[in-house]
Design a protein around this nucleic acid. Structure first.
Lengths: 202, 202
DNA sequence: TTTGACATGTAATGAGTTACATGATTTC
DNA sequence: GAAATCATGTAACTCATTACATGTCAAA
C-alpha cells in the first residue's frame, strides 16, 4: 500500500501533471517503486479526493486539459506519518531463488541460461543505477535539481545524501545478485565435471 | 504467477496433504516463496483439476478426511517447462528503499528507528537462514532427507548443492541489507554532527 | 479445561496487470 | 506519412491479503 506514499514523496519535490508523474515513475522513482499508468492516474485522483493533493486544471492549448498536482500540508503530514510508521516488509517471493532451489530438475543448459540471464538482468540494472547515482552527485539529475531549489542550501547535502544512500543500497543489491549467479555458474561447471568424471571412469 | 510452481516444486520431493504443504510454506519453502493457507488450498485444488497433481482422499479417523497430493508426470513436465521458461522478474517495489530515498522528511530519531528495525528484521532472518542452511548440510533437514530417499545416491550431492546455493544467495542478501542499514546509521550520525556544528558555531 | 495442533477452506476486499481507447501535436 | 510524445484514463482480469468459519483430538 505504498503507491500513494511514493506519489506524495515524488510530488514533495515539486508540482507535476499526471503525465509528468507517470514519466518519473518510468525513470527515477522506478528504481524504488514501479507502477503503470493505469495505477498512477486513479491513485492521484484518490489522493486529491482525500485532500493530500491539490489539483489545478490547466488548459493544454486545444488538446484538452491536464491536471497539475501539488502536495498539501495534509499530504506532507501523511508522508511524515508514513515514514515514522513501521515498515511493512513484503512477503518473500522471488522467482529466481525459487527456481534456484529446485535446479536439480533442470538440464545443465537450462541452468546456465537461467544464471546467465540473471547476471545480464542485474548487470544492466546496475549500470543504470550507477549512471543515475552519478547524476545525483554532479547536479545533473533534473528532478533532484528542481527539488533542491525549494530548500535552503544548508539542507541540500542531507537531501542528496539520502538519495545517494538509497542508490548505494540498490547498487549493492545488484552486485550481490551478480556475484551469486556467478558462483552458480561455477557450481554448474563443478557438477557437470563430476558427471563427466563418472562417465569417463565407467 | 509462481505459486503453483512453488507447490509443484515442493511436492516433487514427496506426496503431502494440504496441511503438510501449508506447514512447509511456513518453514522451508517460505524462504523463497511465502503464501497463506487461503491461497494454498485453492491452488492445490486447481493443480489437481489441471492434472498436475493426483489427489487421494484419506480418512482421518473420525475427524473428516484429508487430501494427499502427489505430482503427476504432467506436473513434473510443467515444473521443467517453468524452469526453462524466462524468469519473470517482478516490478521493483521496496518500501524500505522508497523510505530511504526520502529520509530528509523524517526526524533523526525516526531515521534511526527505521534503520535499526531494518537491521533487526534482516538479522533475525539471517539467523534463521544460517540455521536452515546448516541442517541442509548435516542431513537433519527433514523435507530434504525425505526428498533424497527417492533419488539415487549419485544425485544427492547435486540436489543438496542447489538448495545450499539458494540459501547462500538469501544469506548474502540479508548481509547486504544489514551492511547497508549500518552505513545509513553512520550517515545519520554524520548529518546530525553537522547540524550540531552549525548550531554550536552560531 | 483451555491451548495448540490438525485439517480445510470461504468471503470480501484490495492491489496489480494487461489490454485497450482516444485524439492532438511534434519530430523524422 | 509514420512514429513518438503528450495526456488521461477505463475495463476486465488475476493475484494476494485479511478476516473469518468449523470442528476434532491430544496434551498441559
Amino acid at each position: 500500500m505504498s503507491l500513494p506514499h511514493a506519489l506524495l514523496a515524488l510530488l514533495s519535490g515539486r508540482e507535476m501533471t499526471g503525465y509528468e508523474v507517470s514519466q518519473q515513475f518510468g525513470r527515477s522513482t522506478a528504481h524504488v517503486w514501479q507502477a503503470p499508468d493505469s495505477q498512477i492516474y486513479p491513485a492521484l485522483r484518490r489522493l486529491a479526493e482525500q485532500g493530500h493533493l491539490e489539483v489545478e486544471e490547466v488548459d493544454d492549448g486545444g488538446r484538452g486539459t491536464k491536471k497539475r498536482y501539488r502536495v498539501t500540508d495534509a499530504g506532507l503530514d501523511e508522508l511524515r506519518y508514513w515514514l515514522a510508521s513501521p515498515t511493512q516488509y513484503r512477503r518473500q517471493r522471488d522467482p529466481a531463488y525459487l527456481k534456484a532451489a529446485y535446479l536439480e530438475w533442470a538440464e545443465p543448459a537450462v541452468v546456465r541460461e537461467l544464471l546467465t540471464e540473471h547476471i545480464a538482468f542485474h548487470a544492466e540494472h546496475l549500470e543504470l543505477l550507477e549512471r543515475t547515482r552519478a547524476t545525483l552527485l554532479d547536479g545533473s539529475h533534473p528532478t533532484l535539481a528542481r527539488r533542491l531549489e525549494r530548500h535552503p542550501v544548508a539542507e541540500h547535502e542531507q537531501i542528496v545524501a539520502w538519495k545517494v544512500f538509497a542508490y548505494d543500497g540498490l547498487i549493492d543489491q545488484a552486485r550481490t545478485e551478480i556475484a551469486w549467479a556467478r558462483r552458480g555458474l561455477d557450481l554448474a561447471d563443478r557438477l557437470a565435471g563430476q558427471v563427466t568424471d563418472r562417465v569417463g571412469r565407467a
